[in-house]
Write a protein that binds this DNA or RNA. Sequence first.
DNA 1: CTCCAGGGAGCCT
DNA 2: AGGCTCCATGGA
Length: 301
Amino acid sequence: MRSGTIEDDAIRGPVNVQATLESGQTFLWTRMDDKMYASDTPKEAQPWYRTVQDRSVIDVRQTKAGLEWRGTEDVTPILRRRLGIDDDLDSILSTFPDEPILRAAVDRYRGMRLVQEPFFGTVISFILSAQMRIPRIHRLVTTLRREFGAEISVEGETHYQFPSPESLAATTEAELRDLGLGYRAPYVRRTAQMIADDDVDPQSVAEQPYEHARETLTQLVGVGEKVADCILLFSLGFDEPVPLDTWIRSAIETHFPEVRAGTYEETSAAIRKQFGPRPGYTQTYVFHHLRTGGESPVPSD
DNA sequence: CTCCAGGGAGCCT
DNA sequence: AGGCTCCATGGA
């Protein structure tokens, strides 16, 4: 394993690794102290996080001086992309509208960045996310990696990649139901088959205008407008999407009542105007702040 | 026991 | 297009 650091002066603004990786944007990282989604950790004792991409194992943690990494190669370029290190965060945060809920969210989680995660793992993660709580989505994604992902051996330790489209397409619905996927089992199988068949190609989706891209993704089984927005935001480099889930809809009712509930498209367009020039970024701060109890006492996870 | 979770598909008007 | 109803499963 190689190792290295990314110093603060090589990062555009503040960074908060825990908030970035434990805010429900991605389910492809594992916290190595096994306390994923536990309460906020003190600055001094930041845990390691691990993921596997292609044949590489990637570890990262936050230090006082920036980021520290270990990997089977120089994983600096991968980290910069996946953790949004090159986003000019101070400049982005300064464009947030001056609203109390946004100030509170930024005060609490300044340094949280938008991730850019691998496409297929993101698609399957958010198909699973329908009507599920965040820790359970993470648990199921981890189960899929262990059951169907390619094994990678590094220094006597076994790691699991996220499964390929082909390997998930080759499962059976019963097999997936036994793992706890419930009614999402056929969605996962069928979408894996579609992507294996190249029915939807991430590169060309990324080149389409936002609304067109969202429409394209909803061809995938189990991908509606909300899940499509998540995929565009967390994997395909779009910054307009505001995935309208229960938390954001509730935030709209409470904090942006001028945005009247309409169709998904109408509400989406209206809230994007309220959220400033980087609506996806704004959304991520609001979501994480509210979900972690940043408002009236909220059911804890 | 009931209620709900980062919704979506299928079917009906 | 817009409005149902069902869909598994686990945790509070």
